[in-house]
Simulated scan of single mutants.
Amino acid sequence: MLNVPNILTIFRLIAAPMVVLIFLILPRPYADWIALVLFVGASLTDFLDGYLARLWKQTSKLGAMLDPIADKAMVILALIAVVSIYGAQVHVIVPAALIAFREVFVSGLREYLGDTAGTLKVTKLAKWKTAVQMVAIGVLLGKGIIEHGLYERIVGMDPALVDAILSGAEEDLFGLRWREAATNVARTGGFILMWAAAILTLITGWDYFRKALPHLRDT
């Protein structure tokens, strides 16, 4: 059972809680770097394990069972890390709550349907939903790294000088302007992607519920 695809899935399952716990173990920005590397690496295995299993004909019941669990654990635990970093910002906590609700709802639906759950096949839109979720989380984790680089350079500087550099009145010898611009782009882009992921999440969740509805009616 421990073939390469299953090992990759197990790695993703182990990496999921580490994305959160690393912030309790290490100070920032080291925690941000390691969390981002773990999350990106685990996200890549989401594609790679299924591709290799089909290519090498190594599909197994263990892999079929662990893969959706690892996917949901990766997304939900990474969302916990993002929410803990950004606090109760509406552009993070609302889409994160919608995404988490959908994942729990669909998992419960599949469990209730049992063998009939095989009729709820993963759609292309659901795959896009997962991709947008992972990109959004990756961007928001990366924003913390860029922002720390900005703060590291302005600590101890005269606030008036910082304002003058950022406004263009003074020469930017420390790369403050591009770091501020990159921070703003990552923040705004991450928020937009989070809402896009939440919308796709709700659409695909409704699609699964609609397909399951005939099996939920009493006969």
Rank of each mutant, 00 (worst) to 15 (best):
L8V: 06
F47M: 09
V37N: 04
V40I: 13
F39R: 01
R54E: 10
K57S: 14
P29S: 10
A42P: 12
L8Y: 07
A64P: 03
P27Q: 06
L77S: 08
D46F: 02
D71V: 12
V75H: 02
Q58S: 14
G50M: 07
A64I: 04
I69C: 03
I34T: 10
M65C: 02
A31R: 04
A70W: 14
L26R: 08
A64Y: 12
I10H: 02
F47I: 05
M65L: 15
R28F: 11
D71W: 14
A31F: 09
L77W: 15
F23G: 00
L52S: 08
A53D: 09
R54Y: 14
A31D: 02
V37S: 05
L24R: 13
L66T: 00
R12I: 07
R28H: 12
A81G: 01
L36T: 13
A31K: 07
K57C: 06
V19A: 05
R28I: 12
I7Y: 04
D32F: 14
L24M: 13
L62H: 00
L48R: 01
F23H: 12
K57E: 12
K57I: 03
I10L: 11
V19G: 03
A78W: 12
A16F: 09
I25R: 09
D46L: 01
I76R: 03
A70E: 10
L77T: 14
V37D: 00
Y30G: 00
F11N: 03
W56G: 00
T9N: 07
L36V: 07
L44C: 12
A64M: 07
L13A: 10
A42L: 07
F11V: 11
K72Y: 09
I10R: 06
G41I: 09
A70N: 10
R28P: 01
